[in-house]
Computed example of a mutant assay.
Amino acid sequence: MTSEHTETEQATQTKEQTPAGMFQAIGVITGDVTFIKDEERNKYIANITIGQYQYNLFPHGSSWSKLASFNGLRKQIESTGISKQKLIVYPKITHYPSREQQHKIAFQLVAFENDNVENSISQELNDLEFKLSGLWQFIPVCKTPCITVMRNFSDERLEYIKQAQLSSKVNFMKAAHIPLMWKDAPVKPFRFNPKLEKEQQGKAMFVSIKARFIPGKDMFGFDSLLGMPQDEPPKYLKAGKKDKAEVLKSKLAFKRQRTSNEQIKGTIKPKVVLKKLDPVETNPAAVIEKPKLKPKS
């Protein structure tokens, strides 16, 4: 077994006993859905308009089974002419390196109302309501505290990441950091303090709540507790820092090489000596992670 696999296992097996529950971020939204054909890539892209605010709508994954709901929704709108749809979605959050730059919210389609989904979560939640379960904490690139939703642990998933390529493995274990406004929370969000030793830091609590998405503000607001905060989270998968740094280093190197190649093509006298990448220049300052979770039945 390689060192990178060992690093992952250590992150998933910190406790033999964990509380019941799971990491999740899933909810219901209603809005006008528009599909547009991207001729260049021969695929459809979609948006959903909630009130006066428009958000990107993506399929959940690229496999045929996960594209079925996305394509089914498009065909239903085409056949009925009814664009206003009630959807079950995952929030898709993109954070940026600067704390001053606003995060971006989109949604991944899980199912739509007429998708013949049994025991649908839409029966439990009203419009704009979400179930959020994760670690309550601040992250370096966001002023608002977040609920961090990790990839739930299973033996099958552990076997997959042991065999996956490094980039695929790190992408598979990316977390979602969901900005949440929660006044008078029963526990404070964890905040890392570089001045304290590791054993003095404390840790993020695992919380399960119902929250409402706030269009326009592009964040979520606390509604109610679904369970008491817990010291220990359910078991989860987490990529090691070295693995994430190595993947980001490779991405930066590839991006620089591509930029250099494009500059060469656009130069009349392409006498350009490619600069050898300095390890210091490719050392990542941060890794921004995204959610990709399965809904709770």
Rank of each mutant, 00 (worst) to 15 (best):
G240D: 09
K276M: 07
V149Y: 01
D127G: 04
Q123K: 15
D32M: 07
I121K: 14
Q13P: 00
P19S: 10
I48C: 05
I147F: 02
K162T: 02
R157K: 15
W64C: 00
I26V: 14
Y96M: 09
K271F: 08
S260A: 11
R74E: 02
I26T: 12
K269D: 10
Q137P: 00
E118P: 00
N171K: 06
M1F: 09
F138N: 10
F130V: 09
S167R: 09
A176P: 02
E156W: 01
I264D: 03
K75Q: 13
K15L: 10
T18F: 03
I268V: 15
Q24N: 13
A175M: 02
Y236W: 01
K203M: 07
Q13M: 10
N126S: 15
D127T: 15
D38I: 04
K75R: 10
F70S: 02
K43D: 01
P140I: 08
S154P: 06
V33Y: 03
H60A: 05
A20Y: 06
L274M: 11
M228F: 04
K210T: 13
G21E: 05
N56D: 12
I26G: 06
F172L: 03
K92H: 13
E100H: 04
S98K: 07
K210Y: 01
E159T: 03
H177T: 05
P194M: 13
V89F: 05
K265S: 09
K269H: 08
V33A: 04
R191E: 15
R258G: 00
E4C: 07
A204M: 04
I88M: 12
P140N: 09
P186K: 13
K217H: 09
A68G: 01
S3I: 14
F172R: 02
Q165Y: 03
K290M: 11
T148Q: 13
L225D: 09
K188T: 13
Q257S: 07
R99V: 14
K241D: 14
K269P: 00
M1S: 15
K174G: 04
E100Q: 11
Y160K: 06
P234D: 08
T94S: 14
P295F: 07
D218T: 07
S62C: 04
A106K: 06
K66E: 06
M181F: 00
K92V: 00
D231S: 02
L128G: 07
D184N: 15
G27H: 12
T282R: 11
E199Y: 15
Q163T: 09
P186R: 14
R157A: 10
Y160I: 03
V187Y: 05
P179R: 15
K143Y: 04
V110I: 14
M181I: 15
T49F: 01
L73W: 05
Q200Y: 01
R151N: 06
K92M: 08
D278Q: 11
F213G: 10
L180K: 10
D278K: 15
Q201H: 11
P59E: 06
F130Y: 11
H5L: 10
